[in-house]
C-alpha cells in the first residue's frame, strides 16, 4: 500500500548536506527564478519570527494555564478536568488545528499565537495541577500551622516543591509549540518552516537547511528551559534527586 522510497547513495547524502550548508550562508536564486532566497539574512529573519511566535504563544499558555493549575492543585479540586485536559490536548492534530484556524478565522499573527497557545495549555495545566496537588500534605499543614496565609503557602511551599513537574509541562508545551510554529507559513506567518514547506521555491537544499535549523532551534529552546528549571529548583530538591 505504501511505496518504499529509493535509497540514495551516502555520497549523495553528504552532497545535499553540503548544499544545505551553502543555502544557509549564501543566497541563491529561487527554483522559481527571479528572487534570491536563503543566505544568513533571510535565515535570521525567519528564525527570529519562529522564536517570536513560539515565545508569545508559550507566554500566553503559561499565563492562562498556570494560575488555573495552581488554584485547582492548591484546592485539590478538579482532578478530572486538569488531567483530561492534558489527555485531550495530546489528541489535537496540530496540522488540522492550524489549517482550520487559518481557513475559518483567518491568517495572521494573533490567530496563529492563539492556535499555538491552545497546544501549550494542556501540558502546563495538567503538570501544574499534578505538581501542586502531589506536594506532601504534611508540609502544607505545617506551613498553615506556622501561620502562613494560603497565598504564602502556594508561593513559598507548594510552588518551589512542584517546580520540576511544572517545568516538565512548560518544556512539553514549548516543544509542541515550536514544532507547530514550523507549519506557521500555512497560517500566513513565515517561519523557518517556509524552507521546508515551500520546496518549489527553495529546493531540496532549502528543505534540508530548514529541517536542520528547526531541529537546532528546538534543541536550543529545550536546553535553555532545562537550564531555567535547574536554576529555579531549590538546593534541597537537587540534593534529593542526586
Amino acid at each position: 500500500m505504501i511505496p518504499l522510497p529509493a535509497l540514495t547513495l551516502p555520497t549523495a547524502a553528504f552532497g545535499l548536506f553540503g548544499d544545505a550548508f551553502n543555502f544557509v550562508f549564501d543566497g541563491r536564486e529561487a527554483e522559481t527564478g527571479g528572487v534570491t532566497v536563503g543566505g544568513t539574512s533571510q535565515v535570521l529573519d525567519l528564525a527570529a519570527k519562529q522564536l517570536e511566535v513560539t515565545l508569545l504563544a508559550l507566554a500566553v499558555a503559561i499565563l492562562l494555564a498556570m494560575p488555573v493549575g495552581l488554584w485547582l492543585g492548591h484546592r485539590q479540586k478538579g482532578e478530572f478536568l486538569a488531567v483530561s485536559a492534558g489527555n485531550a490536548g495530546r489528541a489535537i492534530p496540530e496540522l488540522a488545528l492550524i489549517a482550520l484556524m487559518a481557513a475559518a478565522i483567518g491568517v495572521g499573527l494573533v490567530n496563529l499565537v492563539v492556535a499555538l497557545a491552545i497546544l501549550g495549555i494542556p501540558p502546563i495545566l495538567t503538570n501544574t495541577y499534578v505538581g501542586i496537588s502531589q506536594v506532601d500534605r504534611a508540609s502544607v499543614e505545617a506551613a498553615r500551622g506556622m501561620g502562613m496565609t494560603e497565598t504564602a503557602i502556594v508561593r513559598k511551599v507548594e510552588l518551589p516543591l512542584a517546580v520540576p513537574t511544572i517545568m516538565g509541562g512548560v518544556r512539553t508545551a514549548a516543544i509542541n509549540i515550536i514544532a507547530t510554529a514550523t507549519i506557521a507559513p500555512l497560517a500566513g506567518i513565515l517561519t523557518l518552516g517556509d524552507f521546508i514547506i515551500a520546496r518549489n521555491v527553495y529546493g531540496d537544499a532549502g528543505v534540508l537547511a530548514g529541517a536542520i535549523l528547526v531541529a537546532l532551534m528546538a534543541l536550543a529552546l529545550e536546553g535553555t528551559l532545562a537550564g531555567i528549571q535547574w536554576a529555579m529548583t531549590s538546593k534541597g530538591l537537587k540534593l534529593k534527586r542526586s
Binding site: 522510497p5 516543544i175 514550523t182 529541517a211 536542520i212 531541529a215 528546538a218 534543541l219
Partner: peptide, 16 residues
Amino acid sequence: TIPSISFFFLLLPITG
C-alpha cells in the same frame, strides 16, 4: 525534542 516535521527532512538524503 526534534520536531517530527524537521525529522522527516533530516532523513531526506537517506530515505527520501
